[in-house]
Each structure stands twice: as C-alpha cells, then as structure tokens.
C-alpha cells in the first residue's frame, strides 16, 4: 500500500448558506505499482480528494497516509517534495517560460533558487543546472524516444506548443521530480485522439518502465478500461465500489447510477 485514505470527510457551504457534506468518509488503499482510476459523476469530489492528498485542501478530517507518513498538516509544497506529483485538470505547461525552464522547475533540486545564491556560489549552481539539463534530455528521450523533436525545441516558449503537446509534455515533466505516486486529473480531457494514444503509452510506461504508482481521475471510460488496473467508484461521498477495472465498470449498480445504462 503506497497510499491509504482513512475516513476522509469534508463539507462546504453553498450559495444559500447551507452546509453540505461532499465527502462522507472516503476509505481507499492505493496499491503500489498499479494504475488506479477514480471515477464518478461531476461534482462528486474527485478533484477535492486530489486536493486533500496533495495538501491543497486542509479543512478535512480523516487521515492521509503516504508510505507510512501521516500527511495531515504538511503544506502542499512539502508533500510534493516527499514524492507525490500532480497533473492538474486542464494542466498545461507554464507559458512565458521555455520548455527547458518548465522541466527544470519540476526538479526537486532547488540549488541557486535563493536570491543571489547563484552569484555567490556560481560553481555549485552551474553544476546543478548542467545536471538538470542532462536529466531533462534523458527524461524526454525515455518518453519520446531517441532524437525526438522536443529535444530541439527546449528553448521554445511553452505557450507555442499545441494543447495536446503541452499535455504530454506536462506528463513528461512529472518524471523530473523523482516522485513515486502521480495524481493525474483527467489527463485526456480536451485532447484529440492522436494524443490520447500517446498519453496512454506514457501512463503505461510510467508504471512499467519507471515503476510508478498512478492514481487518475478520468471520464473517458474507454480509456479507463485500457489503462487502469484498479477502479474506484466515488458516489455520494464514499467509495461505493472498488476492484479490478472491468469488474467495477460492469457492476450493475455502477452502470445504473453513474453510466446511466
């Protein structure tokens, strides 16, 4: 078990000042080295659950345990350094920065980022930068193959890439941080079919070549069936059903309540 969620509860206040419980005791064990899909209707709290895991949402009760460490009260940036990477819904590269800068920032190595430290310790800083550059090239090669075109586009502004390209490059960027668990929020949304196939390959490689654990939110059931080993169905604030993907997606109750079949 790489990640355990124990009795996660959270409530919000709506426009009419009424309180409602979004998550009412979520329990989920995420298995190491597997791809787990989190499915459920719109507004059921899937992204909120991601926010809780990655530390962006703190007003919850319950326990998040990652590799044996309790995550309550740890700020988001520290959680990221502890080995959890995240792709946001509609997550893209950061425009105004080059592809290289995007990739470098994803590294956990922060050498030279304090003001004037690169001026005071130029050798140390240059060495770290060089190391990161090598790592960027290596990651891109691993994901997109030898001599892929992105290796020649490292100095291009990120906003010049197409939406689909930004998405696959954002996925590649996640490999810079040395993370063990990746949270992917709708990796295929808004992406054309050609890139969906590439995304599928990348996620597979993350599991098989890199040995990473992936937890993903997805509305594309076809995609879920193809990549996910395990599927968890979130409904009415709890994990209503969890198990092998085919089993969950073919479950009569899930088909009724979620897929409307």
């Amino acid at each position: 078990m790489i990640l355990q969620l124990k009795d996660i509860r959270i409530s919000f206040t709506n426009a009419q000042n009424e309180s409602f419980d979004l998550l009412r005791g979520v329990n989920l064990d995420v298995e190491k080295g597997k791809i787990t899909a989190l499915v459920g209707g719109n507004g059921t709290g899937k992204t909120t659950l991601f926010n809780i895991i990655s530390g962006f949402e703190k007003n919850y009760t319950g326990e998040v345990v990652f590799e044996g460490n309790d995550f309550n009260r740890i700020p988001a940036h520290r959680i990221s350094l502890m080995g959890i990477g995240r792709l946001f819904q509609d997550g893209q590269l950061m425009g105004g920065l080059t592809l290289m800068e995007n990739m470098k920032l994803a590294s956990d190595d922060t050498t030279g980022e304090m003001p004037f430290s690169s001026l005071l310790f130029p050798k140390k800083w240059k060495k770290a930068e060089l190391q990161k550059e090598l790592q960027v090239r290596e990651v891109l090669t691993r994901i997109f193959g030898q001599d892929n075109k992105y290796l020649n586009m490292l100095d291009k502004d990120a906003s010049e890439f197409s939406y689909g390209e930004q998405r696959i490059l954002s996925l590649a960027r996640l490999l810079m941080g040395g993370d063990r668990l990746l949270l992917l929020d709708e990796p295929t949304s808004g992406v054309n079919p050609m890139y969906i196939e590439i995304i599928e390959q990348i996620i597979r490689e993350m599991k098989e070549q890199e040995g990473l654990t992936v937890l993903l939110i997805e509305h594309n059931m076809h995609f879920v069936r193809k990549v996910a080993d395990v599927c968890a169905y979130l409904d009415e604030g709890i994990i209503a059903k969890v198990g092998p993907t085919a089993e969950v997606l073919d479950d009569k109750n899930v088909r009724n309540s979620y897929l409307g079949l």
């Binding site: 962006f56 700020p75 990221s80 990477g85 946001f88 950061m94 920065l97 922060t110 980022e113």
Partner: peptide, 12 residues
C-alpha cells in the same frame, strides 16, 4: 504563469 503548479512542484 501558474502559482498552483509551482506549488505542486515543491516550491514554497
């Protein structure tokens, strides 16, 4: 460009 992504990359 994107404060939240920077946070998710481990920067304070």
């Amino acid at each position: 460009a994107d404060e939240i992504t920077v946070k998710s990359m481990g920067r304070n």
